[in-house]
Design a protein around this nucleic acid. Structure first.
Length: 398
RNA sequence: GGGUAGGUGGCAGAGUGGUCAAUUGCACCAGGCUGUAAACCUGGCCUCUUCGGAGUUCGGGGGUUCGAAUCCCUCCCUACCCA
């Protein structure tokens, strides 16, 4: 494959490339490039938003380049200020270590982790003394920091404080690039500033600066904000097929194009064809494709069939999550409706359960019995199906 | 170091001694209509309740008062201005 062909593939979907010429030059040498991608193990779930850059990383892998995954144990302690309007809470180390393991396992669904170099950035940062930190801090200025969009916004609007340690984050991330001698670093568009700091630090250290590639930010299920943990609008790679599919079915029609483009390998013509058809069908295709990527073909087929059964034919799905109900509850196998909802985890409180019952949101069994009121005794048995709105659960006596 | 303005339910933001479990908007949940989309209408959104109420909330602690989110003291936190 020629360099130009490679470039064409690698730059597809990329928002910004700093700098294209340098990337071309690097590719022309014919040596595998060291592709850096950093993840901060700040939570348990890797979600679809992360897969946008990860999918790009996989493309590089497929062309023979080396993925270098930085597990940001040290940086997670600081918290990335990128794209947020408030400072992020730092986490404790034990939690971070635990997250890191689960992250890798999840990421392996997108890229080939066995062929990647995986490095914790505390490998070097843990050895640092205060003098090293000072040296790193001396590499930049307050003015440069304030150039960064989220800082300047927070500074001008003075809504939220900017803590000094947050300024350390981009420098640390940049230093990672020096340590691993990155050729290219990938990230979301909000990462541009951080990525550019890496270039500066590498140049300073006498290395050839990395090329920075930024990819579009995926909007979450709400169709508004960036997909993320904080906004609670994400679909996790570890979520069961039904959840992934269901959440996808609930996104706004207007969001579909973006998701098709960023989350599937469908070519433009195919995507257009889907979008010009029935929106509902297009969304099913999208949802099934997402499930297929993370759970396989069989799961995707199954979830489609389940969907049809439950929502189009209004029946019970084959697989229903079980809710453990302590056998000791109630009298003679009867439990008051509101209590049952709480026991089954369908409602947070008795008051909520009461309200939902009054609204007619709750029914049970094959014939969809609706309790007259919250005091109605429901005969509970193994396998009894309980429904509250779109939530559905099967009783398991314990 | 000095000064000013603030800290209210997931967020935004009212309220400044009783009528405040606290206006309103957003988010969220449910019902209706649908395609588990959008829009729209309705109800809900601290906990418990024998549905009459009851109990705990307005940065933390203490106090004044018959009564405080509202007044006083103190501590913690934030922004802005001056140095």
């Amino acid at each position: 494959m020629t360099t130009d062909e490679q470039l064409a593939i690698l730059l597809r979907g990329v928002t910004h490339c700093e700098k294209r010429d340098e990337l071309k030059k690097k590719l022309e040498r014919g040596m595998p490039l060291r592709m850096k991608y950093g993840i901060d193990p700040t939570g348990f779930d890797v979600h679809l938003g992360h897969t946008v850059p990860l999918r790009k990383l996989r493309q590089f892998q497929e062309l023979g380049h080396i993925a270098v995954l930085i597990i940001g144990k040290a940086t997670a302690l600081v918290g990335d200020p990128s794209g947020r309007d408030e400072s992020r809470k730092s986490l404790d180390e034990a939690q971070i270590a635990k997250n890191a393991i689960s992250y890798l396992e999840q990421i392996s669904k997108v890229i080939d982790v066995s062929k990647a170099e995986v490095i914790d950035n505390d490998t070097w940062f843990d050895k640092w003394g205060f003098g090293d930190v000072l040296k790193l801090l001396g590499k930049t200025t307050v003015q440069r920091m304030l150039e960064r969009d989220d800082f300047s916004k927070r500074y001008k609007e003075s809504k939220t404080p900017i803590y000094l340690h947050e300024c350390l984050y981009p420098l640390m991330q940049g230093w990672d690039s020096v340590e691993i001698k990155a050729d290219v670093e990938l990230g979301g568009t909000e990462q541009l500033f951080n990525l550019m700091v890496g270039r500066d630090l590498q140049r300073d250290a006498g290395q050839e600066p990395q090329v920075c590639l930024t990819l579009p930010i995926l909007r979450g299920t709400d169709g508004e904000k960036k997909m993320g943990k904080t906004a609670g609008n994400y679909i996790g790679l570890n979520e069961p097929p039904k959840e992934q599919f269901g959440k996808t079915m609930r996104i706004a029609d207007t969001l579909m194009k973006e998701w098709f483009e960023l989350l599937t390998d469908f070519d433009t013509a195919t995507i257009e064809a889907h979008l010009s058809g029935k929106p509902n069908d297009a969304k099913k295709t999208l949802g099934a494709e997402i499930v297929r990527q993370y759970h396989g073909d069989a799961a995707a087929q199954a979830v489609l069939a389940e969907w049809k059964k439950q929502f189009e034919d209004k029946g019970d799905p084959d697989v229903i999550a079980e809710a453990m109900i302590p056998a000791g509850e109630g009298i003679d196998g009867q439990v008051a409706a509101n209590k049952l909802l709480v026991l089954a985890g369908l409602c947070k409180s008795m008051s909520e359960a009461r309200q939902k019952i009054a609204e007619g949101a709750f029914n049970y069994g094959a014939d969809r019995v609706k309790p007259a009121d919250f005091k109605t005794q429901v005969p509970v048995a193994d396998g009894l199906v309980l429904r509250l709105g779109r939530k559905i659960v099967k009783v398991k006596l314990a």
